[in-house]
Amino acid sequence: MAVEVLVLKETAAGERRVAATPETVRKLVAAGATVRVEPGAGLGAGVTDQAYAEAGAVLAAGEARAAAEVVLCVQPPPAGALGALREGAVLVGMLHPQADEARAAALQARGIRSFPLERLPRTTRAQAMDVLSSQAGMAGYKAVLIAAQLAPRFFPMLTTAAGTIRPSRVLIVGAGVAGLQAIATARRLGAQVEGFDVRPETREQIESLGGKFLDLGVSAAGEGGYARALTDEERAEQQRRLAEHVRNIDVIVCTAAVPGRPAPKIISAAMVDGMKPGSVIVDLAAETGGNCELTVRGETIDHQGVTVAGPLNLASMGAVHASEMYARNVYNFVALFLKDGALSFDWNDELLAKTAWPEPPATPAAVDAA
């Protein structure tokens, strides 16, 4: 009997993405699954129910949640909705179980085998499943477009009958996936772009995209490609040099993040005070506290002539392509345990073992057939 896979319709405010597309539905069906899609699940991402049906999916009936063996989502279902899922079901998505006690309790009470994809190890093999990277790329792109809209100036240099317009000076803080996409986007718009990151190894990546690496003389190279926490002395020196530099910057896009922790505060209120009126800061890290001290989550404010924006869920603003990438990530992960119409979990595979929540025992059976 085929494995029942259910694609949820997202209910979080403003969420337009979907966890499966017709492309990945076809692949799931070919792997031996019966795929059910909740009505209207893909509309925000430009996918109609008819498109899913043509790909081999069936519109979910009322009892679909109770019958589904594998449930796919973008954001975690509300704690109350988890009670409607089948006991022992497999739930795959960006679940953040430890961020909500009620959600964690509901998952455990139903015995749901959870795979929060934000926990996926960041290895070469995992790249095709890396939802953080795929969604960060869209977020970085959209952040620059928001900055360009808010800025009271052109980004590119223009030669006009009224004289020459100098290009905007744009600083991208953080050179992860979102930051690199932001650098590339700002360059495409014609701005003079600098990239700042405390990891010196990002210089080559920034320069390869046409940006200039801003070297403040402070290095925080860490393990696994992430930055380590700065010491108090290092932070003070970084802040002093950065404050001097941003006085002449027109636009700052903040993208720095440390997984599982609040966003580091990099742009202080004093720095903003020193910026030119008409300058713009777009803080992509607003969801985890913001890189700018003045960022207000989900709001755009004016601080003495400087605009500070803290937009949320930027990936959802590009729901069509963000969903395409996310759905492929999800399918590639599900393919680790869905084969020939059956579920089989190889706990010797670190991608499964380290993504699962709670983590399986240290010495589980090599294969757990569900």
Rank of each mutant, 00 (worst) to 15 (best):
A2D: 11
A2G: 06
E4D: 15
L8S: 03
A13C: 04
A13E: 14
A19E: 04
E23I: 03
R26P: 03
E38Q: 14
G40I: 08
G46Y: 02
A51G: 03
A51F: 01
G56D: 01
L59W: 05
A68F: 06
V70F: 02
P78E: 06
P78R: 08
G83P: 07
R86Y: 03
V90Y: 03
V92Q: 03
V92I: 15
H96Y: 14
P97H: 05
A102M: 08
R103E: 07
A106C: 09
A106K: 01
L107Q: 05
Q108D: 12
G111F: 10
F115M: 09
P116A: 05
L117I: 13
T123S: 14
A128R: 15
A128T: 15
A128D: 13
D130E: 12
L132W: 05
L132A: 12
Q135M: 15
A136S: 15
G137K: 08
G137P: 00
G137H: 02
M138L: 13
A139L: 08
A143W: 05
V144S: 02
V144R: 04
V144A: 04
A147L: 10
R153W: 03
F155C: 04
T159C: 12
I165Q: 12
R166E: 12
P167Y: 08
R169H: 12
L171N: 08
L171V: 12
G174A: 03
G176I: 06
I183V: 15
I183H: 03
R188T: 08
L189Q: 02
E194F: 00
V198I: 11
R199M: 00
L209T: 05
G211H: 00
L214K: 04
L214P: 01
D215H: 09
S219C: 05
S219W: 05
A220C: 09
A220N: 07
E223R: 13
D232R: 15
E234I: 11
E244S: 14
H245S: 11
H245A: 12
N248A: 15
I249R: 10
V253H: 09
T255E: 06
A257W: 04
V258H: 11
P259A: 10
V272K: 06
K276T: 15
G278I: 11
V282I: 13
D283W: 11
E287S: 11
E287D: 12
C292F: 07
R297T: 14
G298W: 07
I301P: 04
D302P: 02
H303Q: 08
V308P: 00
V308D: 00
G318Q: 11
Y326G: 00
A327G: 03
N329M: 02
V330D: 00
G341F: 01
L352E: 05
A353S: 12
W357R: 05
W357Y: 14
P360M: 07
P364F: 06
